[in-house]
């Protein structure tokens, strides 16, 4: 159990750092005029607080689920983590990006989907695949 939590914690914080980089480097604004949080003029500390808190809590929740369904993920080795990251991204990040469209957030959709793809599907998935093995 300890191993699952620590793996989730590390992977969650790493994925949060990717989202922070997307926001403070201006990569997110490359595709959209609306900031990732949907709020203008938010300082770096606030962005970091929000993303790191989310990364810690959800990193652990996702990793517990990963351990639960581990044997049923259709891949071997670290690829298991990548497949799992992709599943989590479709259910969480991509879904949130799409649901915002009827509320007028269509400019926000593409960059949010791209940034969460790198954060959840790639970084989180890769790290959880490497860190957690049965």
């Amino acid at each position: 159990m300890k191993r699952i939590i620590i793996s989730g914690l590390i992977a969650g914080v790493a994925s949060a750092i990717v989202l922070i980089i997307f926001q403070i480097s201006g990569l997110f604004e490359l595709f959209s005029t609306t900031p990732i949080l949907g709020v203008e003029n938010v300082n770096v500390q606030t962005i970091a607080q929000i993303e790191i808190t989310l990364g810690i809590i959800w990193g652990i929740i996702w990793s517990v689920l990963y351990a639960f369904i581990y044997d049923y993920i259709p891949a071997i080795g670290f690829k298991k983590g990548l497949v799992y990251g992709l599943i989590i991204w479709i259910i969480s990040g991509f879904r949130l990006a799409v649901i915002i469209i009827p509320y007028g957030g269509y400019l926000w959709t593409t960059p949010f989907a791209i940034s969460t793809f790198f954060s959840i599907a790639i970084v989180y998935g890769l790290l959880i695949g490497y860190l957690y093995k049965k």
Partner: peptide, 26 residues
Amino acid sequence: CIIGLLSNIWMGFRHYLIGLFTGTES
């Protein structure tokens, strides 16, 4: 419920935190 947790609770919690830290209508 698992899908709801991973999608809607995640989404709701994210916007709750944004509202909490920025004082907006999230």
